[in-house]
Design a protein around this nucleic acid. Sequence first.
RNA 1: GGAGAGGUGGCCGAGUAGGUCGAAGGCGGUCGCCUGCUAAGCGAUUGGAUGUGCCUCGAAAGCAUAUCCCGUGGGUUCGAAUCCCACCCUCUCCGCCA
Length: 418
Amino acid sequence: MIDIRLIEIKPEEVRKLLKKKGVDAPIDEILRLNQERKDLIKEVDSLRHLQNVTSREIQKNPSNKEELIAQVKGIVPKLRELEDKLKNIESSINELILSLPNLPHESVPEGKDETGNIPIKYSGSIPQFDFTPKDHLELGESLDLIDVKRAGKVSGSRFYYLKRELVILEYALVQFVTELLVKKGFIPIIPPVLVMEDILYGLGYLPELEEQMYKIPLDKLRLAGTSEHTVVPMFKDEILDVKDLPQRFISYSSCFRREAGAAGKDTRGILRVHQFDKLEMVSFTLPDKSWEEHEFLLSIEEEIMTRLNIPYRVVLICAGDLGFPASKKYDIEAWLPGQDRYRETHSCSNCTDFQSRRLNIRYRDDDGNVHYVHTLNGTALAIGRALIAIMENNQNSDGSINVPEVLIPYAKFEVIKR
RNA sequence: GGAGAGGUGGCCGAGUAGGUCGAAGGCGGUCGCCUGCUAAGCGAUUGGAUGUGCCUCGAAAGCAUAUCCCGUGGGUUCGAAUCCCACCCUCUCCGCCA
C-alpha cells in the first residue's frame, strides 16, 4: 500500500505516477477523508482524556462518586458516536488506499499494455536446424515424456503427466538451481501451498487475482499461484533485525493457476497449465538496497539461463503492464524453436515497501528506529517452461534430445532417446 | 473427529473478588562505571501504533504531550490484561492417517 503520508506531502506526484500505471486515483477524496480523520482523532482523544481523568478521580474521591459518574455518563454516548464515525472513516480511507497499486519506478517506461514492453537485451544464439524443429509436445509424446491426454481424463484440460527422463530432468534442475543459489547465500525453503485469504489481500493479489486463484471455500484457503504468496508473508507483523538483511530465500513449490480468461490460448502442450513446479527467489532488503537487489536477482536468472544454454531476451515491463504490487519488473523470455518466438519463462519484481506496509514487515535499524523492509521476488526457474525450452532447443533430427551439459552430472544421462 | 490446557513486552514469566498495569521479576540487548583485557560485579536504560505542539521549506530524526494496543473482534462498566460472547491459533491425550 502507498504511504498515506506520501499522498499528503506530494499528492500531485502520486497522482502522476499512478496515471502512468493507468490508474485515476481518488487523491482528493483520500486527502479530504484523511483531514476528517485527523479532526476526529483530536475530538475523540480529548473526550477519552476527560473520561480517563474522571475515572481516576472517582477512584481517588469516592465521596463524589455519584456526581462524577453522572458526569462521565454524559460524555459516553458522544464518545461512542465519534468513535464509530472515526472507525468508518478509517476503513473508507483504507479501502481507497488498498485499491491503489504500487507506484512505478522512474526507470519504468510509459505504456498501456504489453505492447509497451521493451526488450533490452538478447543473449545466447538461436539454434539453426537443418530440419523442421518439433515442438515440445510432439517431442514429448513421441519419447513418452509428456501425457496430456490421460491427464485430461483424470484432471481436465491444462494438466499433464510428466514421465521418465523428464521427471529426472526436473529433479536435476531443482538440484542444479538450489545448489547454485545456496552457494550465493539463499536459504532453501519448501513452503505451504495453501494460503489464507487475508494474507493474499495483504500481498495485494486479492481481489486482483480473484479469478486467477483456486479457492477452497470451506476453509477460506487458496492454492498459491506462486511461492511468493507464501514466502513473503512469512514475516508478517515481525520486526526483523537489520543484521539479518538482506534475507534471501530460494523456494520450491507447486503453483496453481486457473488461467481464467485464457481459454483457447496456448492450449497445446504444457506451456500454460493449471499446475506446475517453480523455484522462486524471494528477498527482504533494506529500502536503499532494493534496486541493487533487483538487478542482482535478474543477474541470477540470466546466469541460470546462460548455464542451461537457453537463448533468451530480457524485457523491461512498461508501467501499464506492471503487476499490482510491482514498482518495476523484468521478464525473461526464452527462445522456443517450436513456436519460433520468445516466450516468458521468468519475471523479477521489486515491490519496494508496498507489500511490507500491508503485511507489516519491518526492521529495526542501528539507531533503534523501525522502518518497512522492501520485498522482491523473481523466478529462479519455472520447471515446466524450462523443460520446454530445453527440449525444443536441444532436439536432434531423429527426435532425440540432448541434455544440457550442466545437468548431466545430476541427470546421469546425456541424451533422451528411444 | 473426541477430551482437556493455554495464548501477556525480544525471550522466560508474574498479574483474575475489575481501578494510576503498558504491565513485577528474571534473561537477553544497549550505554556507563569498574578492569591491563575478558568474565564477574555495580548503575542506568530497554515495545509498537496514531494524533498534536516544538523543530524543519516539507518529510525523516529528535524533544514534549495525549490516545490506543496484554491472540483477534465485539459486549458489560464511570473504569478491563483481569468479567461475558464469538472467532483464530498453540499445546497435551485418545482416535484416524501420508
